[in-house]
């Protein structure tokens, strides 16, 4: 899905350029379309990043927890993450609802925007669910790989 979204992003832009330069006829909504594809890819990427724990996590205070409580504390941390992502999901639902009610349309394309925006609550809730699962069943958690992820 993510891969398709990126392919669509690049292809719609390229089609617009080729159409304009070679056939004197660009595609009016192509850049808009590409933007939505890129947003979908970006959010799906966010949940992928969460899936293998590759979001940047500063580990400055990790030493505060005595080894004895390590497992319990790690579960607490996951529960808090589940809670925050759940909260974001809830807010995202509210945001999409207003877009839907106002009938907001995409410039140039004239499509309703809310279906694209559904990727927001989907992403937040799916990440939240994942944290919830590993809070309940920590054995499913992957080893922490967040070291050295600042590389960009």
């Amino acid at each position: 899905m993510t891969v398709i979204a990126y392919a669509v992003t690049a292809l719609s832009l390229l089609a617009d350029i080729l159409g304009r330069e070679l056939f004197s006829q660009g595609i009016d909504g192509a850049p808009r379309f590409a933007v939505y594809a890129a947003i979908i890819a970006g959010f799906l990427g966010m949940s992928l990043a969460a899936e293998d724990d590759s979001h940047i996590r500063p580990q400055v205070f990790d030493y505060l927890v005595p080894p004895l409580f390590e497992k319990m504390f790690s579960r607490l941390a996951d529960a808090v993450s589940a809670l925050i992502y759940g909260g974001l999901g809830y807010l995202a639902v509210g945001f999409v609802r207003v877009t839907y009610e106002n009938g907001d349309i995409a410039p140039v394309l004239d499509w309703p925007i809310w279906p694209v925006q559904l990727v927001l609550p989907y992403t937040f809730f799916s990440i939240s669910l994942r944290y919830l699962v590993i809070t309940v069943a920590p054995s499913l958690k992957r080893p922490d790989t967040s070291l050295g992820r600042e590389i960009r």
């Binding site: 304009r20 006829q25 660009g26 009016d28 140039v108």
Partner: peptide, 11 residues
């Protein structure tokens, strides 16, 4: 408007 005069429109 631009297309009505036969132009190749670039937004």
């Amino acid at each position: 408007t631009a297309e009505s005069v036969g132009a190749n429109s670039v937004m």
